[in-house]
Write a protein that binds this DNA or RNA. Structure first.
Length: 313
DNA sequence: AAACCCCTCAACCGCGGATAA
DNA sequence: CTTATCCGCGGTTGAGGGGTT
């Protein structure tokens, strides 16, 4: 039994005082030696718990409380199709997001999808004729693979390296982030543009302009022929069911198939804007054809020829 | 008004790889 | 080389809160 292990280990929600202790420790020693926090008697928390708290809540530049933007959703969906459930890896492509964030986002999405698929009878659709413009995301920026294991680590190590000083502000940390030869200007402008649009109204975490200076890995190049993910295969199988479109009610399927534009897995027009508190109203998302497709993985549409726009008819 | 449902998020657990002793 | 410990990751759970009925 190691020193301090006799003392009871605290679990559950963190108190402000505990956060302060943890922050002080990280400022002094960097984000490491987590288990020493307990052995020194600073906190009654396991090293694991301390690390988690730091990584998910306390480290700088987190987008705490901000809903995933449309672009972030897109990135997650694409990367999940490519990497699978490698949340830490996926999170490296999303500034200010942790693996936990991505994981939670994805599982929420999966639950929603599962529920929709299990619902045999659709609620009456009020917005069947409501055509939404289709965001097409084929031209994903050509992104490189990560050069570090995770944003967490990248950020952590950069801070740790200079941890001899007691305090480092964010701007200093940003300077420490390595190497501009990775920068994809498209990606940077994307980040820079995205933040103000999505998060400018949040008080808790103003989207730091400097975030756009962080280097994040680039999205992997799309495969020439992207195989369907298992999720997509299941959905495709269901699409082959002649009754599948019945879920939309009489007359709807043809409308969707022939005239409609397929929204690509994104809640593009959802008025997000708000951070946390901005909880989704359940009826904001009735199972309409539009929202239904929102829940499809994007890759399943990669094999569908784009429909002509109405102006081309 | 209250019960219920659903969603989000924080935090825990178990496992496996990496590293130190 | 082996063992112990640390650390990070992915899966899971439960609390809390808002919306719906």
């Amino acid at each position: 039994m190691r020193q301090g292990e006799r003392e009871e280990i605290r679990k559950g929600p963190w108190k402000v005082e505990e956060d302060e202790v943890l922050i002080n420790h990280v400022n002094k020693y960097g984000p490491r030696d987590w288990s020493s926090i307990r052995s020194k008697g600073l906190l009654q928390r396991t090293g694991k718990s301390c690390r988690l708290r730091w990584v998910n809540k306390l480290r700088p530049n987190l987008k705490n409380g901000c809903k995933f933007s449309v672009e972030e959703e897109r990135v997650v969906i694409e990367l999940q199709a490519q990497f699978g459930n490698k949340w830490a890896r996926i999170a490296t492509y999303l500034p200010g997001r942790t693996d936990n964030d991505v994981k939670n986002f994805w599982s929420s999405r999966q639950k929603r999808l599962a529920r929709i698929l299990q619902t045999p009878t659709p609620p009456p659709s009020k917005s069947q004729k409501h055509n939404r413009e289709v965001p097409v995301f084929r031209d994903v920026p050509d992104l490189e693979a990560p050069k570090f294991s995770s944003s967490v680590e990248e950020e952590s190590s950069s801070k740790a390296q200079s941890s001899s000083s007691s305090h480092i502000d964010n701007s200093e940390m940003i300077k420490m982030v390595p190497l501009p030869d990775l920068v994809n200007p498209d990606l940077l402008s994307f980040e820079a543009n995205m933040c103000p649009l999505e998060f400018i109204s949040t008080e808790k975490i103003p989207c730091n302009e400097s975030q756009s200076q962080f280097l994040f890995p680039q999205l992997p190049q799309p495969q020439p022929v992207l195989p369907f993910s298992p999720e997509s295969q299941e959905l495709v199988a269901r699409l082959e069911d002649p009754n599948f479109m019945d879920v939309f009610g009489p007359g709807d399927a043809s409308e969707i198939v022939n005239g409609g534009q397929i929204p690509f897995g994104l809640t593009f027009f959802e008025p997000e804007g708000s951070c946390r508190n901005g909880r989704r109203k359940q009826n904001d998302n009735p199972v309409t054809p539009d929202s239904f497709f929102d829940d499809f993985p994007t890759d399943m549409f990669d094999h569908i020829e784009p429909l002509p726009s109405p102006s081309d008819w």
